[in-house]
Amino acid sequence: MTKKVIYSMNTAYRGEYTIYGYTFGNGEESACIVGAMRGNEFQQLYICSLLSKKLYELEGKGSVVSGKKILLIPSLNYSSFNVGKKYWISDNSDINRAFPGNPEGQATSRIAAAVLNQVSGYAYGIQFASFYMEGDFIPHVRMMETGKQSTSLANQFGMPYVLTAELRSYDKSTLNYNWQIRGTEAFSVYSGATETIDEESAQNAVSSVLRFLTRMGIIRYNCHAGYISTILDEEELLNIKSEKASGFFRKLVRPGTEVKRGEIIANIVNPMTGEIADDIYAPTDGIIFYTQNSPMVYQNTILFKIIRRLHN
């Protein structure tokens, strides 16, 4: 394991801020893994810490294939963890909306440019991402439909689902998009949680990355073969919203739960009276893919996303 400086900058009160990367093996730039970009991505950083330890052990055993190099960048934005902010400490900007970046621009733009410069050229790029909505997911690999995405490669992670998604207006300023445009096969791995540590799904995320690296001939590691992923289009997921009322969100199902059409899957509870303000019904048979995880919800909040007409 070699520690390297990805980017370093001077700050007014925190001294030098340095983004570190860790390389395993030598030679061809084979796989690059990027962790937390936001200061609330505890799960993403935790997965990187587990992966770092595992890759170090594998390297020590000679299990990184000769002539292959892996780069791991656990966090681009640890200052925001330190001050309890989600976005960049000084101006609240989002590094994952700053790509491809500008080396002469503002701080997050400079970080994006420096990181993209360091991670371009790798054959495979993996990012542990969080979604723009707070909540819990079934673990999955997400790919943007840039025209360069490969679902068959995404399948090699052996995660339960591969989700393809149409480009949103802001996607062109994300790492994943810019990675793909520069020729790296890029994947976003969603492990289920963000602001809390989910040990089981963190371990599964580590296994899925090690499985992928093994199948791509970058490391030698014996592990369970995982799933043959179900490929979903994000547009096929059905949103269930709190259309009628706000209040406490008492959810009765979890990601992965199979539900029947007409089944009550949550209650919205009036915070003053304790009365049920609304029952949330499953409008279709299917599997819960996403759940909101806030204790209380506004009206018109997305509470669930359901995979229609699929069974466990």
Partner: peptide, 10 residues
Amino acid sequence: SADMLIEEVV
């Protein structure tokens, strides 16, 4: 308009 968490409406 949408109900906020408790009582108020945005």
